[in-house]
Write a protein that binds this DNA or RNA. Structure first.
Lengths: 88, 88
DNA sequence: ACTATTGTTCGACAATCGTTAAATTACAAC
DNA sequence: GTTGTAATTTAACGATTGTCGAACAATAGT
């Protein structure tokens, strides 16, 4: 497992973003209203989440919509559980 | 979920350490043989893993033995899965 | 007591990270 | 065209992080 994924999860704002996306697809603008950060900072965080494929991106006009990548979350979860000793 | 846990997982050497402990309890000295890092660096990493309760510690004489904390791994896995949209 | 082994603590250093201000791009409405 | 909104890019900053060498502490064996 690439450590980049865990680095992406190692930030309060990014975890909040994932929490917001857990309620469904959302635009960058709406996400921004729920966080006390600037627009460039949000753009940076979204790029980090994209780079590890934790989120999907869809552009429509001037808006950018984001949604969770559930299969990636499954992948991470399975890796974590896989660390546990197999009763050997 | 505290981001400190994901920070603890955001390092190649620490992931390798967890992988080693997945095969069972191990001493710091044995872990060290499997990594190309110095003793102080290993000590640092073990402290990070302890601080987020990912590992258990047991001292015996001059040796320190480490083992995985399975329930903490469960906790992380459940958090990850909990991010997924509840089909709403 | 002396030596060897195991492990921690303390500085110090280079690299990375989160953040912002400023400038830039892209699209929509007028 | 101009204006306004949405989003990215760049450069710079302070803070955090991984690493090591050096010194230190604790236990074991001679």
């Amino acid at each position: 497992m690439d450590t980049e994924i865990f680095k992406a999860l190692s930030d309060d704002n990014r975890l909040r973003i994932l929490g917001i996306l857990g309620s469904g697809e959302s635009s960058a603008c709406e996400i921004l209203k729920n966080l006390n950060i600037s627009q460039p900072t949000l753009s940076h965080h979204m790029k980090v989440l994209q780079s590890v494929e934790l989120i999907n991106v869809r552009k429509s006009g001037q808006w950018t919509y984001y949604s969770l990548n559930g299969s990636k979350l499954d992948e991470i979860s399975e890796f974590i559980i896989g660390l546990k000793p197999s009763k050997a």
